[in-house]
Write a protein that binds this DNA or RNA. Structure first.
Lengths: 154, 154
DNA sequence: GCTTTGTGAAACTATTCTAGTTACAAGTCC
DNA sequence: GGACTTGTAACTAGAATAGTTTCACAAAGC
């Protein structure tokens, strides 16, 4: 019913990679922040790697960002981890009755609407970068710790 | 990963109800057009009934539309059968580490974006009525392309 | 009044998907 | 070489959905 949590976990991971000194953001460290299993993180960094967003090599601790956070939109991340193609957000019931006037046309009639609805959602994701999310976090955090990102070397 | 097929089935059902003579669109007849089980249809008409879109009484064959198709948006149907509340399309990973600056703020930072994305999708659904879909079907039916599914790439 | 038909609802099964977990081979750095 | 980390496969657990069976109750017709 809802979109996989891999998406927010991937955003979480990217932000951690950007604020952590090189070589310190191991899958285990990220997993402890996300509160999950290191293998889950490695699966996600693997997908982010195949999408060209990070670079991770076996054996070397901590993945490395290949693009600045400001150049990564949420849609990039969403696509990288969800592998959700166009029109896959909605499912149409399979094999309606071809002898029924409504049944044999319902899929063709609804599909364009589904594609448009999904695209509208994705456009919102496209307008926001991971850097925006990181900025929101530092602003939220700023209520208690004003220079969190400055302290982290940004 | 995707939204329940109850949604298109519900649209399918509403259109069938509108084009069928009163008392003829039984759950069994609708199920044969949708190619599913009559109980599945009854569950959906029950939800449509609770949403005030149709009126169905135990024992009397065929539900009755309480509103014209032109007055029912796809969002109405979607809400009726999905019971998807605001912000439920996306899931955020539960209980991130509160000791991590990113972990304790990621939910608050991403939630507004998720709400906006879902709302954008729903606005597309809101702009289309079930009557529009029914009109598309009758238009497709008018073309009488025998293999339009193949032409559409399916 | 009785039978037939259809709905509403509960209970159960099968299937699928996701997250989580364990285990292990291979790469890197000291 | 040894400690550590990644990548990957295989498995388990849990949730969600569709489908199915079953039964009680309501309405209509005879």
């Amino acid at each position: 019913m809802n979109i996989s949590t891999k998406f927010p976990v991937a955003v979480h991971t990217l932000i951690l990679l950007s604020v952590s000194p090189p070589g310190t953001a191991t899958s285990e460290m990220i997993a402890s922040s996300v509160n999950t299993n290191p293998v889950v993180i490695r699966r996600i960094t693997g997908m982010l790697g195949r999408a060209g967003l990070v670079e991770a090599r076996a054996g070397v601790a901590g993945a490395r960002l290949k693009k600045a956070l400001a150049d990564i939109t949420l849609l990039d991340v969403y696509r990288a981890v969800n592998a959700m193609g166009e029109g896959e957000l909605f499912a149409v019931h399979e094999s309606p009755n071809p002898n029924c006037e409504v049944g044999r046309n319902i899929q063709a009639a609804m599909n364009p609407i589904f594609v448009a609805a999904q695209r509208a959602m994705e456009q919102v994701l496209e307008r926001t970068t991971v850097a925006d999310v990181a900025g929101d976090i530092s602003q939220l955090e700023g209520l208690e710790l004003p220079d969190f990102f400055a302290a982290a070397g940004r």
